[in-house]
């Protein structure tokens, strides 16, 4: 394990043309990271990554398992804070504000940068309560009617309202996997975040449910900035405008999705998208 790591870091120097350290600049950056490093104890999971995520775009992070793409995603709303041994360095900004600043309230940050997880994780409460929870704790509503409205529009946007409107008081855990994941998306958008982070949101779903979620992501792009981590290159190609390719904690390449998939600069990227390794 240790040895492997050493040989990999040697490899890193062998590819000076990787974008490591160099920012992939974007004009309308919503989120930007400069020189980001993430460590789990002794192990470095993200090595000096710099990138921008454009507003109202879908940005896909791809790469083989363990390349650090989920870790990087979780660094964007400080979910890594919940892991004791995890340490983050570098500069992360949301609309130009440093999100790791001591003054930043992590709770408010997470209200602005929502998250959808790999496995659908509805609360073991009713569908209504699942969606209403966020607006309640953030004090977004003063009246029950406002809350009703938020819950309905969120479910509507998540494309779930039609299927569940007659049973809002049934447990969210009783829905099918795809529905649960859309419920989680509705829950995330109910607090009107600016950015939604999705960590392999379809990996636990069947193809039909996956198609629905992908459709939904495309619609949500209008109002939100979306970052999606995915294992499936087809999915990245289908839903994203820009794609970043990670390998062993390095950002190898980032660019327009089309370019990445048709004409990658780097041979590692090419190797990955053509399925030679992964």
């Amino acid at each position: 394990m240790k040895d492997e790591q050493h040989s990999e870091s040697a490899q890193e120097h062998a590819y000076p043309e990787t974008t490591a350290g160099k920012p992939t600049v974007e004009d309308n950056a919503k989120v930007s990271a400069r020189g980001a490093n993430v460590y789990y104890g002794e192990k470095q999971a993200i090595k000096n990554v710099s990138l921008d995520v454009g507003a109202h775009e879908v940005t896909a992070f791809i790469g083989p398992s363990g390349c650090g793409k989920s870790t990087f995603l979780r660094a964007l709303n400080r979910m890594n804070d919940t892991i004791d041994i995890c340490r983050v360095t570098g500069d992360f900004r949301l609309d130009g504000e440093d999100i790791y600043d001591r003054k930043v309230d992590v709770v408010q940050l997470r209200a602005r940068v929502g998250m959808v997880f790999q496995k659908p994780n509805p609360f073991p409460k009713s569908i209504f309560e699942n969606v209403a929870y966020g607006p309640r704790i953030h004090g977004l509503v003063a009246h029950k009617s406002e809350l009703d409205e938020i819950v309905h529009t969120s479910l509507e946007r998540a494309g779930l309202l039609g299927e569940v409107k007659d049973r809002l008081d049934t447990p969210g855990t009783g829905l099918s996997g795809g529905q649960q994941q859309r419920l989680c998306i509705a829950r995330a958008i109910a607090v009107s975040p600016e950015v939604i982070l999705m960590d392999e949101p379809c990996s636990a779903l069947d193809p039909i449910a996956t198609a629905k979620i992908e459709e939904l992501i495309d619609e949500l792009r209008e109002n939100y900035t979306i970052v999606i981590v995915t294992h499936s290159m087809q999915q990245a190609a289908r839903v994203s405008q820009r794609t970043a390719f990670f390998h062993l904690g390095n950002l190898v390449e980032m660019g327009d999705t089309e370019t990445i998939f048709t004409n990658p600069e780097h041979k590692l990227t090419q190797g990955y998208i053509t399925g030679r390794f992964g």
Partner: peptide, 9 residues
């Protein structure tokens, strides 16, 4: 994670 993800403390 779900609760933290929607911004609960």
């Amino acid at each position: 994670e779900a609760a933290l993800g929607v911004g609960a403390s």
